[in-house]
Design a protein around this nucleic acid. Structure first.
Lengths: 217, 217, 217, 217
DNA sequence: CATGAATGAGTATTCATTCAT
DNA sequence: TATGAATGAATACTCATTCAT
């Protein structure tokens, strides 16, 4: 009843609680949706696992669809963060690319369920038109910058950067998707060297032999 | 009294009809499932589009799941066929690889919905254990043979073939998946040259400059 | 082309075939419906077992319902026949009753599935209003006659025959139904003596002790 | 801060409601299934009659089958209860049997639909193997005890009790089934005297005349 | 705010029946 | 006449969503 401090009377009102709760839900959702697949994922089950009631989920997300997409975005955001952190302080364009690659692979090695989420998203919401969602493929812009810098550094052949980014993106997607499909137990990160070797050095023994640009033309 | 064939009573069975009808259904299913996605695909709609009754579909396939998986397999079979035809008569290992690649790309350019089917299959049936289904990834064996031959022909650097195949498979998957994801309008086939150029020639200006095998080590 | 006999030209036209076929169907139906139950009985299966096409069944019976009810009636008819044959030549009212009873029991011992059919009929068609069906409970009339004769023969107490028939019918039904329910392996016929003993001699040591007609009044 | 009960958050659970609702459903189900028969009973209709939605039924019973069997068991339980109550305080073995019989008949007179349920159960679930279900035929044990006591009291002939119980059970079943089949409007209870008279006194004028144990041997 | 009971739209599948051959 | 392919009405069950408490 003594009221020296006026404001903090009563429950301290944890200002952070809603945000924390929201993130808890997102984290649980990620593995949950990945495990069951979007259509078979019963929100009651998720609520049970979280120890909350189904209705509570709807206080944080307006629909199952929104929850799922928010979950995917949350994962993609974490991915971006990890790649950013891994490359921020690196100067050498070449090494930056390598570290970015390793960061990608490390992320999917430690968050294997995210691949499932990506696939689920494309499968169920190929025509996704939720405006509030950030474009998750700004990663391309990042790669574009990296390879631009590499090109300018002069060690690289004069390859159109756009095509290069396309090809590299595809390679990345492919590796991740492949691991997801093939149940390959080998870690992605361990493949980094192979990929870099092939991409940077090419397969041919001597690409400058003679003046042929393309051996099959 | 009866002729050579026993039991010619009743409606004479059109021996061809079932197979024709079955294939018709599979073909329509492919675009149908790709358009709507497996979970939202109501077989009544498919039946309507085919101009038959729903029950008829169930005469040919015991369940929606079976129909879907048969559809995917049918597509994968067509893909294999097209690649086989495109490479069968070619001697040069290098050109065979190029032609195989082009055949792949051509197939997905002309059957873009198949990518959707593959994604749907992984999304809905990741634990698919239907024994009657042929392993669709024997393609890897094919690529393995191709690169083995290329290696033996002596024009290629001495790269472990298994890793090479892994990387190439991933690149392929990635390109296809990328197009599917990115709604890229550009044809896959048009990218063949870029891919071949990067993979065979590498990105570095001169990989044999000095003695460095790997510029980042 | 020689035509000494005018009529029997061509196929001899088996005049009996339709009736035989009809009875074949009825016989197969009996065990079939008893095994699967009316609602789960798929006519395609029955047709398969008979080695005919489903459509053929519809040439002999206008609907599944008609087929089932005809099947039941056929069985009830066989039951009547067997009881008739077993009692026809017997003079003594008492023995006639015993033999009728034994005939009943023998029938259900050798045609156990018929009980199932009776139950199915009541379960599915309790409001059966198919006019062409013979009343299967004329058996009551038979029993009435038998007990009338027994009463007139003077060995029986003066019990109202109608009530007696009711009670006896119930006892019969009950025994049969009981066996059906209880999966009792003992044959019904072996119980005849017990039943007759109790029904004719009663349970009480001396029913005429004193003048009490009913010990609990 | 919380009171004695943990987790008083959210809508307070009405502890009684579920049980009440469950029993309401069971009671309505009994007449519903009896009226329509199991296979034709559409749960949507039952829900309508109850003024609830179909989904609600599935909250209380996992399937139509479970609901039906629970309904039957509920009825059988009521029957047991009524017979127990009617006989509990009675000492005389003879009168106890009579009262048990009357209780049985009274139950089926006032719950005529239960016969239908029993028939439906046998018709649809003859191979019922749901372990959680109590054996409804423990009634036999009860009868066995009753007749044992009667035998020991010395008023009864020396008839094997097991056979006696079999016969009496059959008679009971038969009477009930008969009423069900025959649409007899007469009440079962009114038949008690007839049944008891025949069973206890037998049909023969004098069973001890001479030394014949069995008049037909 | 949290709860969880209630809702009811939505869907795969079956099978009696028809009828072209 | 026999056939069996085609039909489509009928139905149990799920689960996202709402809202009274």
């Amino acid at each position: 009843m003594t009221s020296t401090t006026r404001k903090p009377v009563g429950r301290p009102k944890d200002e952070e609680l809603p945000a924390r709760r929201r993130q808890e839900i997102l984290d649980a959702s990620a593995v949950f949706f990945a495990r069951l697949g979007y259509p078979s994922a019963d929100l009651r089950l998720l609520a049970d696992e979280l120890g909350v009631a189904k209705g509570t989920l709807y206080r944080y997300f307006p629909s199952k669809k929104h929850l799922f997409l928010a979950t995917v975005d949350s994962c993609m955001h974490q991915l971006s963060q990890q790649v950013s952190v891994a490359t921020l302080h690196i100067e050498s364009p070449l090494e930056r690319i390598e570290q970015a690659l390793r960061a990608y692979f490390r992320f999917f090695d430690s968050h294997p369920h995210v691949v499932e989420l990506i696939v689920q998203e494309r499968a169920e919401f190929k025509d996704r038109e939720l405006p509030e969602m950030a474009e998750p493929h700004d990663h391309a812009a990042m790669w574009h910058g990296y390879f631009d810098a590499l090109l300018k550094s002069g060690v690289m052949r004069d390859v159109p950067v756009q095509r290069l980014v396309d090809t590299m993106s595809s390679l990345l997607y492919g590796l991740i998707f492949n691991k997801y499909v093939g149940c390959a137990s080998e870690s992605l990160e361990s493949k980094t060297d192979d990929v870099l070797d092939i991409v940077f050095n090419g397969l041919m023994k001597d690409k400058n032999q003679g003046n042929q640009r393309n051996p099959w033309k």
